[in-house]
Amino acid sequence: MKDSTNGDLSRREFIGGTGAAIVAVNATTATAQDRDAAEARAIAEVPRTRIEITVNGQRQSVDVEDRWTLVELLRDHLGLTGTRIGCNRGECGACTVLIDDEPAYACSTLAVWADGRSIRTVEGVERDGKVSTLQQAFIEHNAPQCGFCTSGQLMSATALLERNPSPTAQEIREALSGNLCRCSNYNAIVEAVQAAVKMGGA
């Protein structure tokens, strides 16, 4: 049985067999740098799609893999690590960014879907090098505790105030309902948004 399969080796078995041999060699002789280089070559061979996106007002073209999510593009490839990955399943809101001014979960959005769109992240809410009114209000009202959800909360709140400059407390809670705070600092966050309204908006 074994002899007959050896005599009629399919392409898949051949590749599988040589692959195992290469792995075995790597495990004994290759350095970590060699492995990283091999991995980099493998990644470079994955086809990419060129997209044109505007991130925080800056238009740029990026080559992305089909499987990248928007938050992976922002954090791992554009260096914008202000947007957090919490659950990575659209269940916590830490990755909230604005896509054409509407809040969305960047973890559940493919990077290619950002083609032709305008993306705003927490890095883009400052004005002339100064924190935004909302950010100032967050600081003054201790809205961040551990801070992990803060950038997402800020993005949802920014979108709300741009759409509705004088929301009620209930409207604020509804607009921020898609952003979990595991410190459960919700009251302070709502107070901060109300304070920003009094201070003159987003």
């Binding site: 659209g90 909230t96 896509i99 979960y105 559940s108 949802s156 607009a175 898609g178």
Partner: peptide
């Protein structure tokens, strides 16, 4: 349905 962000997309 779900949350505002999910309904937006």
């Amino acid at each position: 349905v779900a949350s505002p962000q999910i309904r937006n997309v």
